[in-house]
Write a protein that binds this DNA or RNA. Structure first.
Ligand SMILES: [Zn+2]
Ligand SMILES: [Zn+2]
Ligand SMILES: [Zn+2]
Ligand SMILES: [Zn+2]
Lengths: 130, 130
DNA sequence: TACATAGTGTTATATTATAACAATTTAAAT
DNA sequence: ATTTAAATTGTTATAATATAACACTATGTA
């Protein structure tokens, strides 16, 4: 049985914050929010973020430089992520679609190359903003 | 007949540089390279980049904070982009696949929502690096 | 214990991007 | 041609995002 990832103190503090947040959090907003818990400097935040991303516990929304918790067990292994982003209210939702992930995992480029790792960001208007 | 986009002086200088580059360029590397042509400060670069992205002449590789010229007429309208990125040599290739763009443009999320705008970045190893 | 590995705390600095405002150029309207 | 509006440019300063480097501490393993 392989060892489960147990979060370290800083990782746990930062994961909890992101996990509770209804919206993606930016690194310096995280820093501000955890200073009362003793995490005082950017490297502490970025290190924890890096590890959490590596573990698949959180994802980075690249177009927004922000971090969101993952609730989709499959992408923890695959590092294959998809999101929808509302261009008005900035609501971000992780897309969990077997069809989509299957299509993308099987997609071959012109050289016949397959890619199991990808990041897809869809942009549009959410229900509320339409 | 609608007006063609004619590039302004700064836009042209910066587009030419990106267009000639075999690899994505970062904003401050662009700045360094065009200083001899009189473009001296970051805002001048970022403004031109913003407009060029808006026109679809270049794309931003979000995971790399770098810019690449577009050679694919279709995404100028759709703002629907896909790239493959080599995790070793950082080679970036724009993917132009009718099948992929059709699939993504027709993809519906759980709320039945469609998205004509998206950015997809595939990660893996290029031919050389495998 | 001894050793290696991972995590932490800290300071400083690098990199990426925008705010704000004045001046200039361009294109359209009178 | 003159006026006007819009877009672009030039410039300085600063904000926001991210990493380097180094000393130290905790954790796991031989
Ligand atoms: Zn996920
Ligand atoms: Zn919305
Ligand atoms: Zn393109
Ligand atoms: Zn390569």
């Amino acid at each position: 049985m392989h060892k489960e990832h147990t979060l370290t103190k800083n990782q746990q503090i930062i994961f909890d914050l992101i996990d509770k947040s209804p919206e993606p959090l930016k690194a310096y907003s995280i820093l501000f929010n955890v200073q009362k818990k003793g995490i005082k400097a950017p490297p502490q935040v970025y290190r924890a973020l890096d590890k959490l991303v590596e573990m698949g516990k959180i994802h980075k929304i690249e177009s927004r430089n922000a971090f969101i918790a993952c609730h989709n067990s499959s992408c923890q292994v695959a590092k294959a992520t998809a999101f929808s982003i509302c261009e008005i209210c900035e609501k971000v939702t992780e897309i969990s679609s077997a069809g989509l992930s299957k299509y993308l995992a099987n997609f071959k480029d012109k050289d016949g190359m397959k890619y199991s790792k990808y990041n897809l960001e869809f942009f549009g208007l959410c229900k509320k903003c339409r």
